[in-house]
């Protein structure tokens, strides 16, 4: 599953980051590396971009870019992204 398909309130563990060039490097630099736990917090009013919680902070990326991030969904795991509710 890719990150853009995850519904707000759900999350999982990153297994791979695809794509290339500046975008991919940027995603990696911001901490979206394999094995990282990510939680999708919400979707922007117009449906895109999305807000993520990871490594104890909030990050916003577009859905088309989130489609590059493979994720393994963990069930009911809202406390995993370093952001406890």
């Amino acid at each position: 599953m890719t990150l853009d398909q995850i519904k707000p309130g759900n999350g999982g563990t990153i297994t791979a980051v695809r794509g290339e060039g500046a975008l991919r490097r940027r995603l990696l630099d911001m901490g979206l590396t394999p094995k990282t736990k990510v939680l999708v917090k919400k979707t922007a009013p117009m449906g895109d971009p999305i807000e993520l919680a990871l490594r104890g902070y909030m990050l916003s990326i577009r859905k088309e870019d989130a489609a590059n991030i493979e994720i393994e969904v963990t069930v009911d795991d809202t406390s995993t992204a370093g952001i406890s509710g």
Binding site: G21, A22, L23, R26, L27, M30, P49, E51, Y57, M58, L59, S60, I61, R62, D65
Partner: peptide
């Protein structure tokens, strides 16, 4: 050309 990706922190 490639635009700078929109990967933005929400501080």
């Amino acid at each position: 050309g490639e635009c700078v990706p929109f990967v933005m922190e929400l501080p």
